[in-house]
Amino acid sequence: MKRVIFFLAVVLSASLIFFEGNTTEENKVKKQTTNEVIRLLKTNYEDIEEITITNYETLPTNVVAVEGHLNNNKDKFFSVTYNSSTKSPSDMIVSAKQRPECLDKICK
Rank of each mutant, 00 (worst) to 15 (best):
I53G: 06
N83R: 05
S79Y: 10
P89Y: 05
Y45P: 02
K97E: 14
N35K: 13
S84M: 13
T54V: 05
A96G: 11
M92N: 09
S84I: 13
A9N: 03
V4E: 13
K74V: 12
N72F: 09
V66M: 06
N22K: 15
I17Q: 07
V11P: 00
K30S: 05
M1S: 14
N22D: 15
V80M: 01
K105W: 00
I93L: 11
F78C: 09
V66E: 11
T52E: 11
E26I: 13
V80S: 03
D104N: 13
H69M: 07
L59K: 05
A14Y: 02
L12F: 13
C102S: 04
L70F: 04
K108I: 09
A65T: 03
T23H: 06
E26D: 14
K31C: 06
P100S: 06
T24S: 11
N44E: 09
A65D: 11
K87T: 15
N71I: 11
T54N: 03
S85M: 02
T81W: 02
N62Y: 08
F18E: 11
P89G: 08
N73T: 14
K87E: 15
C102D: 10
F6W: 15
V94Y: 00
N62V: 10
K105R: 02
H69C: 07
N44H: 01
M92F: 03
D104W: 03
S95Y: 08
E49G: 14
E101C: 05
